[in-house]
Design a protein around this nucleic acid. Structure first.
Length: 568
DNA sequence: CCTCAAGGCCAT
DNA sequence: ATGGCCTTGAGG
């Protein structure tokens, strides 16, 4: 083998950009493909326990040319992008391999799969050639790409210099980064329990209250330990290896002898870092806009001052992302449910919502702040937010391009994804399509998805609860660290409005179209149970719920077009 | 053996 | 303090 051959076969990071500064990637460093300089910077910072403080708004732009200006923001970005302090060795032992090695290998395969999946929806950067409307992958294409094995991990990655950079969290990342999420509660449950939570087709006998009452462990036990993936083949990542056994990761933190850093690692949930929410939060978005959008001058941090390093780890959207459902969930629900649904488009949409609602409840329960609320308040929050979260989930899947454009139900009707997302509320499908297009063009990413979801759960209308407004502030703070989010908030509010419209529409079917209503299995549907409870509470004069659901809406239409097309 | 992510070195 | 290049060494 010649030297040239060796060079060719060597893992090729050519064209890969460092997610921190955009420089050329030299390999995996501390859990992430980064450049040599960010590797060194991260190592020095952690080894020497350096403490920086940004003299601006902790929102400095970091790129190759200005990465030296603000070490605080640079280090924050390192962490946000996924570099792991545990990978810096406390004992400074050189050489060898650590337990991340096998993860890196899998990550290569994973990245290839993700890239292959996303390549079809990638929007060329402005410096590229003409922009083309995004296309969608088909399950067949995906199967080919997902048959990736460790043998072909050396194949060159998709050239990311030609694509919009986007930080993608994976289940793998969640495993790698955080052994546990909550620190010490009876309901303690690990991140991977959520990320890897298998299955979604449970029986319909349980009510939302029952779901809320059950412990997470109960819930897990009732799920099968593996789940069918009809259209999306799983990659050779051994889920079971890590799913219920968390020792390897826990062991690693001991192995790497970084107990001091392990203590600094965030055990972050919404409720754990209220102290971070300072008076600056409310104005942060405005200043971010000023700093990074309208002003050509980047904020400088001329004299970083020292401050406790813990500052960095209290809050980050990346931490919150770990609880997001995996990207295959919504496609799975849709393709499985469409088979199970007999012949009505509305019934299909409601059943999809039913399946996702169970996931949403489980997700909400894992949140410390949510789980601290009493059951009634939890119910109130869920009643207000489930439809918004549901639409956000489907919107995200649509932005990712993991869904078909239409799904064919039993009677041959083609049902658009918008129709499904909006619970059959055809009136607003074109608005929703526009939202999807906008988000795609804006570079909607996992961070935004995460923020959307939490902002939906902790609905603005529920800010009567102090816990809710605290949670919202915290989300906005964490989101603001990585985004100028004003434009996204606008779209979020549109989605929220669509959700209320859709809930009203669906509830309206009960009187306007009893025939359709009967097809929805009102006796067993969790979604319809939710709507009924909301309606009952409202008629009983509950102020909280009234406030958020009494938006006056157009009268639900009485008919809908059986053949629904995507509009663009 | 070889690989490649760790830590180390040192000119800048 | 930075960052390019060097050395190390467990795992394949």
């Amino acid at each position: 083998m010649t030297e040239v051959d060796r060079m060719v076969l060597r893992p090729n990071h050519e064209g890969e950009m460092c997610p921190v500064c955009g420089d050329r990637v030299s390999g995996y460093h501390y859990g992430l493909l980064t450049c040599e300089s960010c590797k060194g910077f991260f190592k020095r910072t952690v080894q020497n326990k350096k403490q920086y403080q940004c003299s601006a708004d902790s929102n400095c732009h970091v790129d190759r040319t200005c990465r030296k200006r603000c070490p605080s923001c640079r280090f924050q970005k390192c962490l946000t992008m996924g570099m792991k302090m545990e990978a810096v060795r406390a004992d400074r032992m050189r050489g060898g391999r650590n337990k991340f090695g096998s993860f890196y290998k899998r990550d290569r395969a994973h990245r290839m799969q993700r890239n292959a999946m996303r390549v079809t929806t990638i929007i060329p950067v402005s410096t590229g050639t003409q922009s083309q409307p995004p296309t969608f992958y088909t399950p067949a294409e995906h199967q080919v790409s997902s048959s990736t094995t460790d043998q072909n991990v050396q194949i060159q990655y998709y050239d990311q210099t030609k694509v919009k950079t986007e930080f993608i969290k994976t289940e793998y990342d969640a495993h790698l980064q955080s052994p546990t999420l909550s620190s010490s509660t009876n309901q303690q449950i690990t991140v991977s329990d959520f990320i890897m939570r298998p299955g979604y087709l449970v029986d319909h006998q349980e009510s939302i209250a029952a779901l809320l009452n059950s412990t997470n462990e109960d819930h897990l036990l009732r799920f099968p330990t593996s789940y069918p993936l009809p259209e999306i083949k799983q990659e050779p990542f051994d889920y079971t290896e890590h799913h219920f056994i968390h020792h390897p990761l826990l062991d690693y933190s001991n192995y790497s002898s970084t107990a001091n850093y392990a203590q600094m690692m965030p055990m972050t949930t919404i409720s754990t870092a209220p102290s971070l929410v300072t008076s600056t939060s409310s104005t942060s978005s405005g200043r971010i806009i000023e700093a990074s959008s309208t002003s050509p001058i980047l904020p400088l941090c001329p004299a970083p001052t020292e401050k406790t390093v813990d500052h960095f780890y209290n809050s980050s959207i990346a931490e919150m992302c770990k609880t997001l459902p995996d990207d295959t969930l919504i496609p799975r629900i849709l393709s499985q449910t469409v088979k199970a649904t007999k012949n009505d488009a509305h019934a299909f949409a409601v059943q999809v919502a039913d399946e996702n609602l169970k996931e949403i409840v489980t997700w909400a329960k894992q949140d410390q702040m949510f789980s601290k609320l009493n059951l009634d308040d939890q119910m109130n929050l869920l009643q207000t937010s489930w439809a918004t979260v549901h639409i956000i989930d489907i919107t995200n899947a649509m932005v990712l391009g993991t869904l078909h454009q239409q799904y064919k139900v039993g009677n041959g009707e083609e049902v658009s994804v918008g129709f499904i997302a909006l619970l059959g509320n055809q009136n607003f499908v074109s608005s929703w399509n526009e939202i999807v297009m906008s988000l795609r063009n804006m570079g909607f990413n996992n961070f935004d998805y995460c923020a959307f979801r939490y902002l939906a759960l902790f609905d603005e209308g529920m800010e009567l609860y102090p816990a809710v407004s605290a949670a919202r502030l915290r989300v906005l703070q964490a989101w603001g660290e990585v985004r100028s989010y004003t434009a996204f908030l606008e779209i979020f509010n549109q989605i929220r409005r669509l959700a209320y419209d859709s809930m009203q529409y669906l509830w309206g079917l009960r009187t306007v179209c009893p025939a359709i209503w009967e097809l929805l299995n009102p006796a067993t549907s969790l979604v319809l149970e939710m709507l009924k409870t909301t309606a009952d509470i409202r008629s009983a004069g509950n102020t909280v719920v009234t406030q958020v659901t009494s938006i006056q809406l157009p009268t639900p239409q009485t008919t809908y077009a059986p053949v629904v097309y995507m509009t663009s």
